[in-house]
Design a binder for these strands. Structure first.
Lengths: 372, 372
DNA sequence: GTGAAAGCGCTAACAA
DNA sequence: TTGTTAGCGCTTTCAC
């Protein structure tokens, strides 16, 4: 009997032929290396107290046989899949806008990379997925982007005991494990002040009809600011997921009798939309109209004129979200706070710097009654 | 003995308490429903020949217990995970440009949606992932975007017997299961002819230094066309993953002594880059310079002027790729051909329509010697 | 029509 | 230091 034969246990030799689509299993490696399957497992996972020689030998044999451990078996046994869900809200019929805006793209990219660095992979799961898809994949945890109020998916995940970390503070009392967000109020305030300092007297807002936290907080911040400085709010709403509606709303905003002399657009495409609308009305940017929009897109550095943008720093958010989630999964009672606020960045370009200084030296804008 | 007790088999009652993090398992459902686990499995999966009453009853109990089958166990047993890898090439240190361009975003979105409709989910896997991540996830197959020559990941996947479908025809002799691509040569030809008809006399190209098939085929098509019509090639190359390099290359192209009067940019941001460069040199578009770029971005409909774009139809590609892959996974000898070519679309806007007709009535451009 | 039993391939407790 | 064994939770023959 050969050394290998000695370890053929549990079933007959012949029963092991040709399973796993012809791929080698841990038993094959054990047999070929003349050790037990435990030793193989330990050698390959760096566990146990094996002499280096054994470890090396087993690894060599495994390599030679092209052995790849079965992820399914390991998951079943350990209860860990190394898989993280990435949930994105869906809009209308379209699957989801995951990548409609540069924000999501950047965020997802950073998240993927951060997950990978810790040995995890991301599974893309639209929030409105067929339920069977959700339960058909073994997730260790989930990242949720902009969870809506009482999101059923999040609720279900939490009920299952899975950690959930959200990008964007959860609406209502959604019980997430942790969240990462910007301080949208502060961001809007800072930006409005910047516009006011550049000479804006009546700042308009292009906002969404959706009820997500970002839209809501930003709009509220704008309204509060208006109230504080005594400006009548001038804003137009549109369904943010519809790009055409954005162009139309931009037009409407500039067509109003109480036309603003500065506009902040909450969504990525608003910059080009507003620029196009301004051209139609013969408004020069920044001379007649100051422009800022919230975007991660690089196009705004080469538009004519370049447009000032507010960056929400999606890379940092994506990274933070994943770190928090993996910490929770691995039970590291993280040093990181479970609520993390990432600072925003206002990238000032020509569109918000009035060439001629404002007529008054006061930095806060006057109420419209004074200007109009 | 209760009906439920009758079916408590295989181990003692107490040993079943509190496993699976407190979640109900198939045995718990069986016990609660007073049937065997086989019946539960059959009832929930719509198999076997159970009376509707039993099926309904089991489903009710399962619902009440909040039972979710373990994906890991099912995968281990059936050999199917319902997971599809989505591989993207990496550039430099950055994890990957997956979403850097609207193309990938749209393609991934369509792919996700198509996969979902057939009960599969997508796992994002950068091609340069740590090897252990690759083998740690049970994939049924993989979509590869723009596989490079002799891609080691693809080779390994194929060796494992997993179906691989690529977006972009594989370079070299990479043995993919199927591929989907555009006819890049035809697309470039059509576009050059469009420019020529619009009065272009010397068409320049902004291209990449990378060796991927898209860049190579497009550039070759351009060079061939130049040779055919007798125009000296005028092109600048740059590393496509570096957005700054693109702006510089655009500038270089327009700064040349043999400045082209029309330019095609192979990459998404080239349109705005070229537009900005044209402004710097005081060139009016389209009067002094005709512009086309390959892009899926909507910004080009609102630039000044709007820019003509070539769309590669990423949605259709993403959908096709996933359909082919799932057909292969499920062993449906698909009616679909294993090599699918998706037509491109030239979206003609102001930037490529010269307002004044060209001085000659000939549609093909003359060699530079005649014009210069 | 329904149930018992045999694993899927692996890891981890425990033996030796 | 290494091997034996017992499952992880499910699907799937096959027997009744």
């Amino acid at each position: 009997m050969t050394a290998a034969g000695k370890h053929q246990v549990g079933r007959t030799d012949t029963s092991r032929r040709g399973n796993r689509r012809g791929r080698a299993g841990i038993r094959d490696v054990a047999a070929a290396a003349g050790v037990s399957i435990t030793t193989v497992s330990d050698a390959l996972n760096g566990k146990g107290r094996l002499p280096d020689a054994t470890r090396r030998h087993v690894r060599e044999v495994a390599d030679r046989l092209g052995y790849r451990p079965s992820a399914a078996a390991r998951t079943l046994r350990t209860g860990r899949s190394g898989l993280i869900g990435l949930t994105v809200t869906t809009y209308g019929d379209e699957p989801f806008t995951f990548t409609e805006f540069a924000y999501f793209a950047e965020m997802a990219r950073a998240a993927t990379s951060a997950a990978l660095a810790r040995g995890y992979a991301l599974v893309i799961l639209p929030a409105t997925s067929r339920h069977d898809v959700w339960s058909n994949v073994a997730l260790d945890g989930t990242v949720v982007i902009d969870p809506s109020d009482h999101d059923p998916v999040v609720t279900e995940l939490v009920r299952q005991g899975l950690p959930v970390v959200s990008d964007g503070r959860p609406a209502g009392s959604l019980p997430v494990t942790a969240w990462v967000d910007n301080d949208h109020q502060a961001a809007v305030l800072g930006l409005l002040e910047h516009l006011a300092e550049a000479g804006a007297r009546r700042i308009g807002l292009l906002t969404g009809t959706t009820t997500d936290t970002y839209t809501r907080l930003s709009t509220t911040a704008y309204l509060n600011w208006c109230e504080r400085v005594g400006q009548d709010p001038v804003y137009e709403e549109y369904p943010a997921h519809d790009p055409c509606a954005g162009a139309v709303a931009a037009d409407r905003l500039l067509a109003r009798p109480d036309r603003p002399d500065a506009v902040y657009g909450l969504f990525d495409p608003n910059g080009t939309d507003l620029l196009a609308a301004a051209r139609r009305y013969g408004l020069r940017v920044p001379d007649d109209l100051l422009l800022v929009c919230c975007s991660e897109s690089t196009v705004y550095s080469t538009t004519e004129p370049p447009i000032t943008t507010l960056s929400l720093k999606p890379r940092r958010i994506g990274t933070a979200v994943v770190q928090l989630l993996i910490d929770a999964i691995e039970g590291l009672s993280s040093d990181r706070p479970v609520e993390q606020v990432i600072p925003t960045e206002l990238i000032v370009r020509a569109s918000s710097q009035r060439r001629r200084p404002p007529r008054t030296t006061v930095s806060a804008p006057r109420p419209p009654s004074e200007t109009g």
